[in-house]
Design a protein around this nucleic acid. Sequence first.
DNA 1: TTATTATATTGCAATATTACGATAAAGATT
DNA 2: AATCTTTATCGTAATATTGCAATATAATAA
Lengths: 117, 117
Amino acid sequence: MQYNNTNMGASKTEHFTEKQNTIATIAKAMGHPARIAILDYILKMDTCICGDIVNALPLAQPTISQHLKELKNAGLIKGNIEGNAICYCIDESALQTMQKYFGQITTKLEKKKTTCC
Amino acid sequence: MQYNNTNMGASKTEHFTEKQNTIATIAKAMGHPARIAILDYILKMDTCICGDIVNALPLAQPTISQHLKELKNAGLIKGNIEGNAICYCIDESALQTMQKYFGQITTKLEKKKTTCC
DNA sequence: TTATTATATTGCAATATTACGATAAAGATT
DNA sequence: AATCTTTATCGTAATATTGCAATATAATAA
């Protein structure tokens, strides 16, 4: 076998396409219920979230701060603190990337007429 | 504080809605480039995958088997082994769940006219 | 200046994930 | 039956994630 690393526990991202890594990164950031709850909460508000997110979720403040950071790194939210209040809102670009991906899947599936499984 | 567990490292899924957990579970399964590559590969084939997936990916056979299991558990693929050949294909239900979720997000975003961030 | 309030960072413990060699299981082939 | 082929499972090492207490940082209020 030509792949002989022992870098266990770590993803071998270098073996996949940039697009595959992009989709996986965004999906991974969405792969935790607390982060979905944060996205839901931002969407529920009329404006971006300004301070009350810690009270709205059953997690400690450092934990939420960490989740927000991951969502931001994945490009799902943007913004920053303003004064001494948080100010985050949805970043549509990552969402559009995902919607486009699912759209392409749907298109491909419609072309396939197999009845295998 | 009323949330006082020490179950560190584990997600506190019980504190979130069923829908949030569902979305997170599917997203988590998609949160690895190898699993996206597997989905891409299945979609690229005319039929479901029958045996050659191990040769198509830069991962050892047990690793791929494990990834396939996770995709199946998340409802992203279905099928089973037939004879001594694998036979997996896309399960559209999980994909539809995700597409619906992203659709709802888009709808909500269109209603919001904030220019905060 | 000294609180106060709000968010971020650090450090660490518990758990989960990733990867693969070795091996098992099961149908196909000889 | 014995062997081959293909996929699954087990065991284990390395790394990543999750969560929070303690603390740091920074803007605001007193």
